[in-house]
Amino acid sequence: MRGSIDQANKRLGYKLLAVTLAMFGFGYALVPLYSVFCELTGLNGKTGRISAETAASETIDQNRSVTVEFVTSIGGSLPWKFKAKVAKISVHPGAATEATFVAVNEASFPIVGRAVPSVAPNSAARYFNKTECFCFTEQKLAAGETKDMVVRFVVDPRLPADVRTLTLAYTFFEAPELSANN
């Protein structure tokens, strides 16, 4: 009698331990789950990426103009200057557009940086499609180097009508594992 209860206790104990381990795994699974959720819903300001051919095939909506603003910032203590050449431009949805950003490495050693984009308002992020971006790859700047960097994008004509302004924000972070001084 006692023996069988002890057995049952141990069995239940191991089952509950398995639940615990599964929930630990679930904590990690939340990371991709949130990412997928953000991608599906366009929350989190994550932008879309399409090929140049797809972009060219979009019909251009000449009757509508959307203002795209550019915001730049530096994350952490990266010794760079980073600016957009123009603060904002007006685009027709469907039209491929190009914008240029300038980064200056003010340090006396080469540094690799990584730009993280974000689009506001969040709900419009998935209608902002990039065909080419300096944020797709790491950017290495030699000591004192100035570099022009290009982003090409298309605003999806399906962008909701109430959105008149989109803000594209870039933050440059140091990619420490790739930088020369590390």
Binding site: T20, L21, A22, M23, F24, G25, F26, G27, Y28, L30, V31, G75, G76, R114, V116, T171, F173, E174, A175, P176, E177
Partner: peptide
């Protein structure tokens, strides 16, 4: 509680082992 354990483990690996769960730079 295991989810908390996971979250703080991610902090630990972000800080010491180069993961980028919560680091925008990665």
């Amino acid at each position: 509680i295991p989810v908390l354990a996971g979250a703080v483990t991610m902090l630990l690996t972000d800080k010491f082992f180069g993961t980028a769960f919560f680091a925008a730079s990665g």
